[in-house]
C-alpha cells in the first residue's frame, strides 16, 4: 500500500531512471540512488516489522548503522536498503520480522 511519500526527488530532465517494484508495485526512480531513498520517495512508509513486537519500522540513519531499513531484495531478506544502490528490475518486499531461510530440497545446491 502506497502512502504519501515522505520525500521527493525533484525530476531532472535527461537524467536516467530505473524501474523497481515494491510488493509488486512499480516505482520509477533516478538511477544510482539507494534503495531506501527510492522507497522513501516512492511512497513506502513501512519498510519492515520489528522482530519482537512486529511494530512498523522505517530507515533511521541512512548510513548503515541502525538496521531499521531492512527489506527483502530479489529474494534475499534482511538487506540494508540504505546501503544498496537500485538496479533496474529490482524486486523489493517488506521484511516481516526475522529473515527466513529456504531449506527446501534443491535450494541447497546453489551454493
Amino acid at each position: 500500500m502506497a502512502t504519501e511519500p515522505y520525500f521527493v526527488i525533484p525530476a531532472k530532465p535527461g537524467s536516467s531512471t530505473v524501474t523497481i517494484t515494491f510488493e509488486g508495485r512499480k516505482i520509477v526512480v533516478p538511477a544510482g540512488i539507494s534503495v531506501a531513498a527510492a522507497l522513501l520517495a516512492g511512497g513506502v512508509g513501512v519498510f519492515r516489522t520489528s522482530i519482537v513486537s512486529a511494530a512498523p519500522r522505517a530507515p533511521f540513519c541512512m548510513m548503515g548503522v541502525c538496521f531499521e531499513c531492512l527489506v527483502e531484495i530479489d529474494g534475499i531478506s534482511g538487506r540494508q536498503s540504505c546501503m544498496v544502490p537500485v538496479t533496474d528490475g529490482m524486486a523489493i518486499r517488506r521484511q516481516e520480522g526475522s529473515s527466513a531461510l529456504d531449506v527446501s530440497e534443491g535450494a541447497k545446491d546453489d551454493v
Binding site: 534482511g78 529473515s99 531461510l101 551454493v111
Partner: peptide, 12 residues
C-alpha cells in the same frame, strides 16, 4: 556451518 546447512549462506 554452511556445509552443514547450505541455506545458512544467506544468513548474517
Amino acid at each position: 556451518g554452511v556445509e552443514t546447512f547450505p541455506a545458512l549462506a544467506d544468513a548474517k
